[in-house]
């Protein structure tokens, strides 16, 4: 199963980006052999709904799991609908995070780590 990680840069020395929707890159990695490809996150350029679009990008990449910092309920709902596993609230260097993932140390998120926010006004 391939894993998509929201990344601050385009290699394994980059960090997990705390933002899911507006991270610059996703690193799509196969933890078995550590082979990876870099996907540019076009959604980061959206005026709104970046998380929703990013979630669809991840789905199209064929990833079975996502590792990120924060994820709102919109993106969460889209990924869940496809059955993608979500590991939110993660930080650190991607290399190390993948290691933790392989060792089963990351905890799958039951719900969105942050509230829905885009367009939120009162």
């Amino acid at each position: 199963m391939k894993v998509a990680i929201s990344a601050t840069g385009n290699d394994l020395n980059a960090f997990v980006d705390p933002r899911f929707g507006r991270c610059p890159f996703f690193i799509l990695i196969d933890p078995e052999n550590m082979e990876y490809e870099v996907i540019r996150n076009e959604a980061s350029q959206s005026m709104g709904g970046a998380g929703i679009k990013a979630a669809q990008t991840v789905i199209k990449s064929g990833a079975g799991a996502v590792i990120t910092g924060n994820m709102g309920p919109n993106a969460f709902a889209v990924l869940k609908a496809e059955g993608v596993k979500i590991y939110a609230g993660v930080s650190g260097k991607i290399k190390d995070v993948i290691q933790q993932f392989k060792e089963g140390k990351l905890k799958e998120s039951e719900s969105a780590s942050v509230e829905r926010h885009f367009g939120m006004r009162k």
Binding site: G48, I52, Q56, V78, A81, E82, G119, M120
Partner: peptide, 18 residues
């Protein structure tokens, strides 16, 4: 243009606030 609709292989999800 507002990312208000998501379509996965199983489901369509609409976000009316967007």
């Amino acid at each position: 243009a507002y990312n208000a609709i998501a379509v996965t292989s199983k489901k369509l999800i609409f976000f009316p606030e967007l």
